[in-house]
Amino acid sequence: MSILILALAIILAVMSLVQKNTVASVIAFVSMMFLLGIYYILLGEKLLGLFQIFVYTGGIVVLTLFGVTVIGSKFPDFKIRPWAVSIVTVVIIGLLIVPFLLPSMPMGGKVIPLKDQVKIFTDFYSLIAIFMGVVAASILYGSIRMLHTLKHGKE
């Protein structure tokens, strides 16, 4: 069951990027987020699943549909960037190597000592914190660049 839901979610994720019609793309995105929310509920994290469904399929998609009403129903043509696949391949190979460098993860069902929890937290979640930092920095850079462009546009 879990494999089916996750496979469907990945297929819908690919569909949302491949579709040329904006409404179909948004519907694929919504379905993917809804399936992930259902999966979290199946994992026992009811609050996280409900949060996911309410926030993504409720709030964010309504905002996106508002944007879609502005741009129309077709995506514009875009330039093909062949180096994108090579970047993705390098990053995925790097992410596959990282778990072998980390200390072995504890087995399920056993009580984890606090010392080991802190060790896992510092070794494992620090990578996620770095990733979030990179994403936040890129969003900040994009916002500053946009403000700069808008300012020069008014002049």
Binding site: A13, L17, S25, Y56, I60, W83, A84, V88, V91, V135
Partner: peptide, 27 residues
Amino acid sequence: AALILFGVGLYGVTSKSDFLKIFFSLE
């Protein structure tokens, strides 16, 4: 599954050139 989803998103961020698909990829 998370790694594949991450790969799909990363490909979208690096290859797509319209705001909506970049936004979807970031999510």
